[in-house]
Structure formats: structure tokens, C-alpha cells
Amino acid sequence: MNIFRFLGDLSHLVSIWLLLHKMTTSKSCTGISFKTQALYALVFATRYLDLLYGSWHSMYNVAMKIFFIGSSLYILYLIKVPFKPTRDPAIDTFKLEYLVGGALIMSLIANYEYSFPEILWSFSIWLEAVAILPQLFIIQRTGEAENITTHYVAALGAYRGLYIPNWLYRYFAEGFFDPIAVIAGIIQTVIYLDFFYIYFTKVLKGQKFELP
């Protein structure tokens, strides 16, 4: 565990807290992509259910895995049950088939072993890389976003972004290199770059997130 990895994980926790805060205080899920949230639930289920076959690295990892699976299911519940009337499915129209299908193909091409757990892990890594796209698509379609929603997306982007210096550190300090995670992680971070540009030049200077 190094500082970049720790800050990345912390940022991931903060992003989920921001999302829950937005929904519970405004009692709405307006502007939030159910599809992105469903993809994250699938990402966590396919990656972290390795708990069931004994992949227990540390209490830290186990606690985080349980938290991410649990919170993602709770978020889906909030969107689908109490805040259902506030969701507008007509703007959440990104085609999930492409993302899930693409991740499936990538998991069959790029994995460390042709075994069910390894392919599942690789699938979760590739799917995570693109899971934010339906959310960014909503922001692009509506041309604006509530500040709290942009803080959520920014914290989520910072999470995988911070894993990159973590991998550099681990490569030089520990000789550790996980090419699949690194390549997918870089793709994931690149997907956020447009968003981050507007976030830094507008939202952090007190303006509303609006596309030009």
C-alpha cells in the first residue's frame, strides 16, 4: 500500500458518499445514469465475489470489497424504488450491449489464464474502464450537470487516475507490473480527460458545469 493507492481508494469512497449524499438530500436521482450504476454493480460483483473462493488479502481489501458490492446494490435500489419517479430513462440511452460485449471480447483476448476466475476478473477490469460512459453521455446530452454530480464524477475519475502513479511506484519500488490493469486503467482515465478539463476550468472556479 502506497500513498497513491490509498488516496485512490479514499477517492473512490468519497465518490460513493457524494452520490448517496446527492440522492438522499435532494431525494432524487436526476442526472444520474442508472446504466452506469448497474455496470458498476456488475463490475464489483464480477471482481469482488472472489471473496467466495477465498481471495482474502487483508481485512482492508475484504472490507472494501464488501462495501463496494453492498453500496452499489443499495444505489440501484434507491434509483429503482424510492427515487424512481425522478429518473428520466429517455436521456439514459447509451447502448450497454456495446460496453458489455466489448468487455467480454477483451476479457477473452487479454487475460492471465483461461480460467473462469481470471476471465471474470479481466472482464470486470475492462468493463470498469468504460462504465462511466453512460453517465458522461447524459451530461453531454443535457449539456450541463449539477455541481454535486460533477464532484461525484470527478472523485470517481480521480480514483483510477491515482492508480496510475501507484502502478509507477510499484513498478520501480516492487518490480510489480499488471499490464491488463494498467492498460485498462489508462484507458479509463483518458475517458475522463474532457470532463476533467471542464471540471477544472469551470466548476472549481465557481461556475456551473455547462458544455460550450
Partner: peptide, 10 residues
């Protein structure tokens, strides 16, 4: 010995 990276990352 396995060449697989240990999956301790989240």
C-alpha cells in the same frame, strides 16, 4: 511459481 500478479488491488 505463478507469473500472475497477486490481485491485492481493488
Amino acid at each position: 511459481e505463478s507469473e500472475k500478479p497477486a490481485k491485492d488491488e481493488l
